[in-house]
């Protein structure tokens, strides 16, 4: 056992990183467009549409209100349908992404809403189409808030991925429960906690770094 302990940790770490970033990327790709739609379909925004806005807002709010551990179990049939299995790291991606999408959508919506209305008006006065308003004004002007929000999403995914370990998702959470908790191996428990803390620190650090690069224009 102790001989391959580092191998186990390394593999668990890789699984966690894979779950966090893969689920993160999936949730960004789906969540950000939803956030854009939520923002621009608001009644005072560039493409007001109360029906779309209400429907999306309701779905997003329902998604955000289901606790992850329950969601994870509840959507097992969906997970099985998509990945062909309900256990393992890849299977864990489904509940992770599903729970992160509404989170990202909400964060993105808030980031976009912080873009001053005057800027969009200025874009319109230049004859910009709605697509141009989104890509030339809305996205670049909200990128700092967006990066901060996405960093927060990744951090949240780290803790969710540990939970996913509980139902056989693999990763550091799984390791901590199987060895640390069920086999009373305090060493593994402590190491996994240290690695998880370190991972969160690194994600936060990189996020801050990235947002400060883009923030150059704002506070100097």
């Amino acid at each position: 056992m102790p001989t391959n302990i580092w191998g186990l940790l390394l593999q668990a770490f890789a699984e966690t990183v894979y779950m966090v970033f893969a689920a993160g990327i999936i949730s960004f790709v789906i969540g950000i467009p939803i956030g854009i739609l939520l923002c621009i379909s608001d009644k005072n925004h560039i493409a007001p549409n109360p029906i779309v806005n209400q429907c999306l807002a309701t779905v997003v709010n329902i998604g955000r209100s289901i606790p992850f551990i329950i969601l994870m179990v509840a959507i097992i049939p969906v997970t099985r349908w998509i990945t062909g299995t309900s256990i393992g790291t890849t299977a864990a991606l489904v509940p992770l992404a599903v729970s992160a999408i509404p989170f990202v959508a909400k964060i993105a919506e808030n980031a976009f809403k912080q873009v001053a209305h005057g800027l969009l008006e200025t874009g319109k006065s230049m004859g910009a189409s709605n697509w141009q308003l989104i890509f030339y004004i809305l996205l670049p002007e909200s990128r700092v808030a967006l990066i901060n929000g996405l960093t927060l999403t990744l951090v949240t995914l780290v803790s969710f991925s540990a939970m996913a370990g509980a139902i056989g998702g693999g990763g550091l959470g799984d390791l901590a429960i199987r060895y640390g908790y069920q086999r009373f191996n305090s060493f593994i428990m402590i190491i996994t906690v240290v690695i998880l803390v370190g991972l969160v620190q690194i994600i936060q650090l990189l996020g801050n770094k990235l947002s400060s690069i883009y923030n150059l224009g704002k506070h100097q």
Partner: peptide, 16 residues
């Protein structure tokens, strides 16, 4: 609209 320039009280420059 591209041929109608407009300036505003609060300038409305893009910070980015």
């Amino acid at each position: 609209q591209q041929k109608i320039g407009m300036i505003f009280q609060h300038f409305n420059l893009l910070n980015s």
